[in-house]
Design a protein around this nucleic acid. Sequence first.
DNA 1: TCTGGGGTCCTAGGACCC
DNA 2: TCTGGGGTCCTAGGACCC
Length: 405
Amino acid sequence: MEANQKWFVHADIDAFFASVEQLDNPQYKGKPVIVGGKPGDRRSVVSTASYEARKFGVHSAMPIFQAYKLCPNGIYLRGRMKRYEELSAQIMEIFRNFSPNVDQMSIDEAFIDLTGTERLFGSPEETARKIKDMVKNETGLTISIGLASNKYIAKIASGLSKPDGFYYVQHGSEQDFMLSLPLKKVWGLGEKSLENLKHAGISTTQGIYELDKDLLSFMFGNSMGTFLYNAVRGKEAETFSRKTKNHSISAENTYSHDLNDIYVIETAIMELAHNVMFRLHREELSSRTITLKIRYSDFTTVSAQESFSSYIYTLDSYFEALKNLFERKYEQNRPIRLLGVGFDNVESNERSVQLELFDDGTEKKKTVEKAIMNLEKKNPKIKIHKARLLDFNGGEPENHCKGAK
DNA sequence: TCTGGGGTCCTAGGACCC
DNA sequence: TCTGGGGTCCTAGGACCC
């Protein structure tokens, strides 16, 4: 084996949320488990379906009511994010036993750089199997693994091996691997791109391979063209290695019934703003750019953002700015199904250190909000909200007949 | 009874400057 | 005196991923 040969594992937990529920509730084992919502929950979608549920045609992102039609005897659960995060952290720790270079991609997957670990753990193939075994033994969960000389191939390979699988793409066979792959398995090609390719008469990776780079760029744009050209040759896609620059944080909510009343709408914006602002403080971040998203009942979606010359530190100023943006963007009297708010171009606090120049009461409000945050941290059960939020129930219509069932 | 939530990246057009 | 061209920043929208 060449000394400078690179090796990456992509590890992906199988049907993560559903598997955790089966682990914690043994009576669910071997049964169709659907995490995402209860039957009858309006506007909920499937987050994860166990493999037993997938046999019925249930899959992620499918509306719950549709899943229920396919699988009426399934076990439907709303999910317990805290528990999933706990197990996720435990598994990421296991990965770190095998490499100092673990790149977590989401709650249930990570890249593990095995380059140069042969002397410690043996061949990459042996190590990959050790990782699988250790996760299984210590948590009871199964993972699927792809092993290859770059992250992009490893990622696709792990997907092919699911569940509880192991797929090894030998160095030198990356291009053959890609050329034997159905187009829809190519990571980065979604519904629209597949449609565009089909429109251009391309239905296989081989079809892409036969076109030169300039032509691909002309047909699909520079970025997509380059991506396609590299992908079918088994080369690392740039998106996998590039460092990200513009972070953002946001919160959004789809309301089970459309919002029409302006007071209810503004209170909903306040609630979202509260969540995001406290997260900003908690994670010690700052931002000067706010974002707002409105989805109308017909699903048309509009967004707006605004940048300011100074950082936004208080909930009051954040809410005022959002309200302003909303008034400019909102088309009067259209029912709203989703509202979202956020910050863009988020920086860590050290970099933005206190560029506040004038005392307009901001300092005082900031101090109060910090104090509230500390209280919430000490006792997570305490939730201190603006008075306006206390009787707000997420824009749901009041239920006046609680006795009736 | 349609279509979640939290992200990242890309593109295209307008403003503005030289 | 009827219209260049490059660069950069900002904004809105869309594609894609898990």
